[in-house]
């Protein structure tokens, strides 16, 4: 199963990077969303997908799933939500101020400050 997951992760990262490199702001937001999903699954797969029981103590169970990746992912999920919200606002404010969502037209360099 790990092999399938590795390929899914690769596809998620690939799509995310492709979207992030495009010119449209909205596609970049979508890309960051996919990127965090990819990262979460990557952490999960690294820890291994075996184990028969969720990491909650129960009588007579010893084969728990690795809890550490789950703890890491849990914080990552919440943070990625915060970041997504932040990016959405950042982008639509940018769009409102510059009247464009074309990244190629948003170019900063030293001469403009």
């Amino acid at each position: 199963m790990e092999f399938v997951m590795a390929i899914v992760i690769g596809i998620l990262f690939m799509a995310a990077v492709y979207l992030i490199l495009s010119k449209s702001l909205l596609r970049i937001i979508l890309g960051t969303g996919l990127l965090s999903h990819g990262a979460h699954l990557l952490i999960l797969t690294m820890g291994g997908l075996g184990g028969t029981s969720p990491p909650v103590l129960a009588e007579g169970v010893t084969d728990y799933v690795d809890p550490l990746p789950q703890a890491l992912i849990l914080t990552a999920i919440v943070i990625s939500f915060g970041v997504t919200a932040f990016i959405i606002v950042l982008f639509y404010r940018t769009y409102a101020e510059h009247k464009t969502d074309n990244m190629n037209l948003m170019k900063g360099n030293d001469e403009h400050d």
Binding site: P54, V56, L57, L74, T75, I77, V78
Partner: peptide, 8 residues
């Protein structure tokens, strides 16, 4: 603390 759930 004992079952799935928590602050988040």
């Amino acid at each position: 603390h004992f079952a799935p759930g928590g602050g988040f």
